[in-house]
């Protein structure tokens, strides 16, 4: 079975804390993703996402605080704008925009985190290996 490789960018305050909670509560999810912790989801430059795809990531998951709950007030709104735009661009480039997913996961939502990671891993598994022409 194809095992996708996923890079996940989680904000420190909500989603990464949610991932810690999933661990503490011993929830399980698929091991296909590796997290890079950023202070805020707004730190994620579209460049990083493309960088991950270029380096062979089959999917990129971004986790931030719920709208209105951003630790940095408005960072997640920047993320939302950037991801929305980038998804359109990925489509233009002939890629499945579903390979990029943005989720709001709070520090209390360990269960949601586990569900999202597993769901996303399975979806990327169905999509198959990424085909990106080396630039």
């Amino acid at each position: 079975m194809f095992e996708p490789r996923i890079v996940a960018f989680f904000c420190k305050w909500c989603t990464s804390a949610g991932a810690d909670l999933a661990g503490t509560a011993r929830m399980t999810y698929l091991p296909n993703s590796v997290n890079i912790q950023v202070m805020c989801s707004s730190r994620v430059d579209p460049e990083h996402i493309l960088d991950a795809f270029r380096n062979g990531a089959d999917g990129v998951l971004i986790g931030g605080c719920h709208p209105g709950d951003c630790h940095y007030k408005t960072g997640n709104y920047q993320t939302l704008k950037r991801v929305t735009l980038l998804k359109k661009m990925l489509t233009e480039l002939g890629m499945e925009s579903r390979r990029l997913r943005l989720e709001w996961i709070s520090a209390a939502e360990g269960q949601k985190l586990a569900r999202v990671v597993t769901e996303f891993s399975e979806e990327i598994r169905r999509l198959g290996k990424i085909k990106v022409r080396q630039l």
């Binding site: 960088d51 380096n55 062979g56």
Partner: peptide, 18 residues
């Protein structure tokens, strides 16, 4: 960003994917 530069993130991505 100090100690989380673009270059650092780039290297981390590469390390995860290779």
């Amino acid at each position: 960003q100090k100690n989380l530069t673009d270059e650092q993130i780039h290297q981390m991505i590469k390390a995860i994917l290779t």
